[in-house]
Design a protein around this nucleic acid. Structure first.
Lengths: 96, 96
DNA sequence: TCGAATTATCACTATATAATAATATAACAC
DNA sequence: GTGTTATATTATTATATAGTGATAATTCGA
């Protein structure tokens, strides 16, 4: 693994390495959701949620569409779902 | 995924989310290595390497043994290897 | 016990990330 | 247009992480 690849992989991991962002991705795994519903589901403040959503959009993980006053987010990079499942498996099988 | 799980997963990801740490794990995938050899292989300063190694030991990813003046590090939590392979696959298949 | 080799730690600066509160913007109904 | 709902942005503070240079600690052999 050369430096460039390592930096890229580290970037991807940093994008996911936050509790709220992990929960957002899980919420969006099977459906798109508007910001307000995500805020409610997470119990996290609106500004923070908006910042995290925007951050993940910048990184290409999410995308969004506006419908009236609401903005619906969805997973743009589907392979993060598979990646997260690997990570959950890892965390389950870590101890033994 | 509840908050506790999300926080734990985020912790694991943060532990891996650094280029030098990723390279160290890759180096140690098949063998243990002493600090000096890791420093040489990475081309990263000794102090930084030592700090990263210690950090990953704290998190349970690595362990070490001393032999004379040298300290040999190895992967303690083998499942991170599988996890990293998932991540590499993800990064390869991301674009399409 | 002295010195060399190896690794760890410390104090510090720099930088990045997170969280907060307040405010701004966008879309729409009226 | 005005008011309302929904979302985004900004400025600020707090906190965490990274990197640096110097120094300390450990081990061993002479």
């Amino acid at each position: 693994m050369d430096k460039k690849v390592a930096e890229h992989v580290a970037e991807v991991l940093k994008t996911l390495a936050h509790p709220a962002r992990l929960e957002i991705i899980e919420l969006l795994e099977t459906k798109e959701m508007c910001v307000g519903d995500i805020v409610t589901a997470l119990g996290v403040k609106q500004a923070i949620t908006s910042q995290q959503l925007n951050m993940m959009k910048d990184k290409g993980v999410l995308s969004c569409r506006r419908n009236g006053t609401k903005v619906y987010y969805r997973i743009e990079n589907k392979s993060v779902i598979r990646l997260l499942h690997c990570i959950y498996d890892h965390c389950k099988t870590k101890k033994p």
